[in-house]
């Protein structure tokens, strides 16, 4: 487990969920699953009593990527698909910050899909919450990389002819050190999961099922398939985690896999140490001398 001393709730000021709200009201459709994810995030931040100035929520483009605007923390609403590298830059520039990256399945798995493997294998110290609704919402209903085969959408009037990708399996294979899934319809579980994910040292991934009530209403379909990960599942067992992820029938929620290994920030620090031992902290004059 991660070092907890800096993360435990800190008196004297005890913040509550409402203390992380910005004045901006969410622009989501009533009933959107993203409300649940946002509420869970408020709760999780309150559990740690983070000072809003020490939290940065980074997002891409899409309905769910509007999320940073509804928090009073720092936020970075960038371009489509690039939230992970932006988040990495923030964290590396100031490792004291708590960085949370959010976005949707289109932002994360389609246009931004190329960045996930590298965030996983670098073990970047941030929490990545993908609000996965298996559809493009902001552009009004086209297939996303997680849409099921055969789904009838604006761009697939005869049904999608593409197989959906499996975000959990991908992150496991890419070497993510914390892989989990939650469902916005089960708030208590999601709260706990986000708290755990933030606590994790390194890259933590949450595939947050979050239905789109307007373009692909899964409120009735998903609860029939969603089951908690069995209590006896060994979260250090990668193959067991993969087996759960690849289950053709069930949509497991909970922690699939968790391991402690050096994070990117820790590895960068060790490189600094090695270099300093080798060359000290070179003055500009000594750098000039290299060329004389």
């Amino acid at each position: 487990m991660a070092e907890k001393e800096t993360l435990e709730p800190q008196p004297p000021l005890k913040r509550e969920a409402k203390d992380y709200k910005s004045g901006n009201e969410p622009i989501w459709c009533p009933g959107c699953g993203d409300f649940g994810v946002l509420a869970s995030l408020y709760d999780a931040l309150a559990v740690y009593n983070f000072d809003p100035k020490d939290v940065v929520v980074v997002s891409g483009i899409g309905c769910s990527s509007r999320l940073p605007g509804f928090l009073n923390t720092y936020g970075f609403h960038g371009v489509h698909g690039r939230a992970l590298p932006i988040g990495m830059g923030v964290k590396l520039a100031n490792p004291e910050l708590n960085v949370i990256v959010t976005g949707g399945d289109g932002d994360g798995f389609a246009i931004g899909g190329g960045h996930i493997p590298h965030a996983c294998r670098r073990n970047v110290d941030l929490t990545y919450i993908v609000m996965d609704n298996e559809i493009y919402g902001l552009t009004k209903g086209q297939i996303s990389p997680t849409s099921p085969l055969g789904l009838d959408t604006g761009s697939t009037p005869e049904g999608s002819i593409e197989n959906p990708l499996n975000p959990i399996a991908l992150c496991l294979i890419y070497g993510a050190s914390f892989v989990s899934r939650a469902y916005s319809g089960k708030r208590q579980e999601m709260n706990k999961l986000i708290v755990r994910a933030i606590d994790h040292k390194g890259f933590s991934f949450i595939d947050a099922y979050s239905p789109c009530i307007t373009f692909y209403d899964t409120y009735k379909i998903w609860p029939q398939k969603i089951v908690p990960i069995p209590e006896d599942h060994d979260t250090s067992d990668l193959m067991a985690a993969l087996k759960l992820a690849l289950d053709p029938e069930k949509m497991y929620v909970g922690i699939f896999y968790e391991k402690r290994e050096p994070s990117l920030v820790e590895r960068e620090d060790s490189i600094r140490k090695v270099l300093k031992e080798k060359i000290g902290s070179p003055s500009i004059q000594s750098l000039f001398e290299l060329f004389q």
Binding site: I86, V90, A93, G114, E268
Partner: peptide
């Protein structure tokens, strides 16, 4: 840091600069 592509390079530069570096 050597990033996975130039998009990621500039994206992370903007993140780092936003954070004050």
């Amino acid at each position: 840091i050597q990033t996975e592509d130039e998009i990621s390079a500039l994206a992370s530069v903007l993140g780092a600069s936003y954070a004050g570096a």
